[in-house]
Structures are given as C-alpha cells and as structure tokens.
Design a protein around this nucleic acid. Sequence first.
DNA 1: TCATCGATGAAGTCATGACTTCACTATCAG
DNA 2: CTGATAGTGAAGTCATGACTTCATCGATGA
Lengths: 109, 109
Amino acid sequence: MSPRIEIDRLFQALGDPTRRAIVDRLSLGPSSVSGLAAPLEITVTAVAQHLQVLEAARLVRTEKAGRVRTCRIAPEGFARLERWIADHRAQWERRLDRLGDVLAEDGDD
Amino acid sequence: MSPRIEIDRLFQALGDPTRRAIVDRLSLGPSSVSGLAAPLEITVTAVAQHLQVLEAARLVRTEKAGRVRTCRIAPEGFARLERWIADHRAQWERRLDRLGDVLAEDGDD
DNA sequence: TCATCGATGAAGTCATGACTTCACTATCAG
DNA sequence: CTGATAGTGAAGTCATGACTTCATCGATGA
C-alpha cells in the first residue's frame, strides 16, 4: 500500500477532535466501544465509525471477545507519524545548514 | 488560546494531501505562491487559501516583498506536533510498564 | 504611462464526512 | 426461552471545506 495513503489516513484520522479524544482516552488504557461513547456524549454508532478510521490508520487496534469489543492504542501509526515529521525536519534543517555554510563563511559557532 | 485548538489546526492542516504537498515542497526551500501552484495544477487562489491554513497552524511562515509572497517552513508547528506524540506515547508506555511489572512478557516495535 | 504579473477577496459549486435513527445480529443472565 | 446488553449496517441529514471563476489591486519593467 502506498505510503502516501498511509500518512494521509494518519493525519486525517487525527484531524478530528472526537477521534483525538478517543486516542486520549485509550492512552490511559483499553476500553469497550460503549465505554468510549459514554463520556463523549455521542452514539455508539458514531464511535464505531471513528474506530474504523482509527484502525485503518493503525492508531488503534481492536478485538472482539464475546459481545464486547476491546479497543487499545496501536503504536505503529504513531511511529509512522514520528518518522514523517523527523524526515521533514531533517530535510529542511539540512538545507539551512548548507545555507549557513555559504552565509557565514568566516567561521561560525 | 486553547492548546486543543492549536493541535486541532495542526492535524487538520496536515490532513489534506495538497497541503502536505506544499509542506513537502517547502521543506526543500522557500517558494512564491505561484511557484507552489504550478506543479500542483490548481489555481493560485486555492494555494493561497491553503497557505492561510498552514500559517494559522504555524507550519509555514510567509512574508510579502513587493508583489511576491515568499513562503517557508515554520518549525513551531512541527515542534508542537512532536510534543503531542511524545506526550501520548509516554502516557501509554508508562501504563504498559506498570502492566509489564505484573505480567512480565513481550516487547513491541 | 501602460500592460503585465503576482496575489487577494468575494461568492458559488460540489463532494466529503460527522453525525443521527432505525432495524438487526449475537451474546449473556435469569 | 426471554429479555437485556454490546455492537453492526444501512440510509439520511447537515455542515464544512476544497475547489473554481471573476473582479480587483498593487508592484514592476518596457
């Protein structure tokens, strides 16, 4: 699967405040779907939809035991995210370095 | 201003592929608005709108000299982003640690 | 000075996406 | 079996947001 799409899903998933609230909650520990819905004051259906998005982005992993689905944080998505930021930071900082070489050619710090 | 809103703007800004393309481009070095528009095959107006979003999220800084507006990466937004991820990672990893004390098992990626 | 170029503002279109409700399935307790 | 519980699927509503076009403005160079 294209890495572009992957990153897309990641940022799109975290772009929604409700979904970030779910992530916040799951950072504290696993929860059921209805357990997530309660403090958010939205329907269980809505939460389930958000969970699909979060799972597709690999930010959350869920498994169903009996009739209850347990949701927990999935580190992969976050790792991917960190890498994206690190890559970009590296890119523009490298450029600033080269620029520094030219502008401050009589000895810099 | 609430930090929630700030993070919101950040993820929402990067949730759009076109805006990420702009960030990609600017990581390589500064550019004018029309310089950004050309490879994206959208109107200059559209790019200007995206730039407003990116500036509000502190991911990009722009300044106008004469009739040309020069756009460059702004590190603050990215720093904010990194901190958000680090905070969350810390939170759930701390929890896994406590759990690990009890269960003593597994390692992850 | 005048034509052009880079950018901006206003307003409209169109798709997407965050919800809801309602109907339904599957599990568990009595 | 019966009834409550946990979640899923389908379909509809409503707002937001990513574009466009058109008109305009200020800087610039011939």
